[in-house]
């Protein structure tokens, strides 16, 4: 081992490190990607009333997609995020219904 030139180890090290880094980043990314999706999808609960019916429908569809992904997560994550997703989706559905009802019967 001692005979191996210094430069080579450092090259190896860089290689290994970058591999580790890459693997880490991808898993992190894999873990995070549905989180970012979730964050984006449920970010409109504060101003849901200002969305159009179409925008709402798109968001509701996204929620349904997310649900299948979250159902595959480990137990605690599943418990917490399914609930959060449920609440945000239900609000969109509620707002959509409310909007279409008031469109039909203008005051």
């Amino acid at each position: 081992m001692n005979t191996i030139p210094y430069g080579k180890t450092s090259k190896q090290l860089v290689l290994v490190l970058s591999f580790i880094l890459y693997a880490f980043l991808t898993t992190a990314h894999g873990q995070e990607s549905w989180r970012t999706d979730f964050d984006e999808t449920c970010a409109r609960t504060t101003d849901a009333m200002s969305l159009s019916n179409n925008e709402l429908k798109v968001l509701i569809a996204k929620c349904d997609q997310l649900q299948t992904i979250i159902e595959k997560q480990e137990e605690t994550v599943r418990k917490v995020f399914l609930k959060r997703l449920q609440m945000c989706k239900n609000l969109y559905v509620y707002v959509l219904e409310s909007k279409s009802a008031s469109e039909k019967t203008p005051k």
Binding site: T45, T46, M87, C88, N90, Y94, V95, E97, S98, A101
Partner: peptide
């Protein structure tokens, strides 16, 4: 409470 705590869990009436 924001919105989602009340709608539609507690108050589902749309009107």
């Amino acid at each position: 409470n924001g919105c989602e705590l009340c709608h539609p869990e507690i108050f589902m009436g749309i009107k």
